[in-house]
Design a protein around this nucleic acid. Structure first.
Lengths: 153, 153
DNA sequence: CTGGACGTTGGAGCGCGCTCCAACGCAAAC
DNA sequence: GTTTGCGTTGGAGCGCGCTCCAACGTCCAG
C-alpha cells in the first residue's frame, strides 16, 4: 500500500492536460480560484494531484456557466473548511437547479428549431419545382417571452 | 377576415414586453440585428408585429447562447431572401446540434452534482454526532477533461 | 560562451454584449 | 413659460474572462 508518488507537473503539462493556457492557470491562481501552487527551488510552479482534482471540479463548474465570482465563493468556503459544508451544499444545489432549468430551456428550443428546420426542408423540397421563400413567416408562435414577463438570463 | 391592424408600439413598450432595455433595442438596430425600425413624424421608433416576431426569434437564439455574430449572419441571409434558405437551414441545424451536445454536458454535470450533494448530505447527517469535513476529497472521478484532450468551449 | 526552451512577474489590452451619458427635440400639464 | 416625460443621436465606458507583453531568470545543448 504505497501512497501516490509525489511527482509534480509543470504548468505547461497541466495546460496540455486541462486544455487551459498557462496564462489562464496563472490567472486562476492570482485571483484565488486555485490555491497558491508550490514552487520548485527555481520558482517554477509544481502542480500535484490535489491541485488537478480541484482544477477539474472548477472546470466542470465553469463549463456549465458558473461565474468565477461564484466559484471563488465556493473556493473560499472550502478553504475555511469546518462549518461551511451546509453553505457549499446549498451553492451546489443552486447551481444544479439552474442547470435543470437551463436544460429545459434548451430542450424547448431544440423542439422549436426542429420545427423550423422542418419548414425549411419543405420549402427546399418544393423548390425543386417552382420556388418561393419565407420560412421566417411560417411559425409565429415561437416560445420567446415577447408576450410579457421579465428577463430570465 | 381582416388583416392585423397597424397599431405600432413605442420602444419602451417593446422593452417592457421583451424584457430588453430600450438601449439594447437601439443597439440591436444599430448593429443590424434587427431591420431599421420605421419612425413616426417626430422621429420616434414605431415597432410593428413583424419586428416583434423577428425579435422573439432573436431572443430565442440569444438565450440559447448563439453569438451576435452568428445571428447577424442569419439576419443578413434572411434579408437576401431568395437563395439563402439552404444556408439558413444549415445554420439552424448547426445550432441545434450544439444545443443537443450542450444538453448532454449539462445532464452529465447534474448527475455529478447530485452525487456530490449526496456526499454533503451524508456528511451533514453524520455531523449530528461527531463532525469531520472533506466532501471535496470524496469523489475524484469527476468527468472534467483533465485527462487529455482539447478545450470544448 | 551563446542560443534556445521554458519559466517567472506585474500590468496592460481585448472581444463581447451591453449600458450609460450628454445634448438635444417635441408635446402635454401646470 | 417651464417643467415633466418620453424619445432621439453618437460615442464613451464597463464587467467578464481571459490573453498578451516586456523584462527578466534558469537550465541545458552545441
Amino acid at each position: 500500500m504505497s501512497v501516490s508518488p509525489p511527482r509534480g507537473m509543470t504548468i505547461s503539462q497541466v495546460a496540455e492536460r486541462t486544455g487551459l493556457s498557462a496564462d489562464t492557470l496563472r490567472y486562476y491562481e492570482r485571483i484565488g480560484l486555485i490555491d497558491p501552487v508550490p514552487r520548485s527551488m527555481t520558482g517554477h510552479r509544481v502542480y500535484g494531484e490535489e491541485q488537478l482534482e480541484w482544477l477539474g471540479f472548477v472546470l466542470l463548474l465553469r463549463d456549465t456557466d458558473m461565474s468565477i465570482q461564484e466559484m471563488l465563493l465556493y473556493a473560499r468556503l472550502r478553504r475555511e473548511g469546518d462549518g461551511t459544508a451546509a453553505r457549499r451544499r446549498a451553492l451546489l444545489a443552486d447551481h444544479r437547479a439552474r442547470l435543470a432549468e437551463e436544460i429545459r430551456r434548451l430542450e424547448g428550443t431544440v423542439r422549436y428549431l426542429d420545427q423550423k428546420i422542418g419548414i425549411y426542408d419543405e420549402m427546399l423540397e418544393a423548390e425543386r419545382g417552382a420556388g418561393t421563400d419565407s420560412a421566417d413567416a411560417q411559425i409565429s408562435a415561437c416560445p420567446a417571452r415577447v408576450s410579457g414577463g421579465a428577463r430570465s438570463r
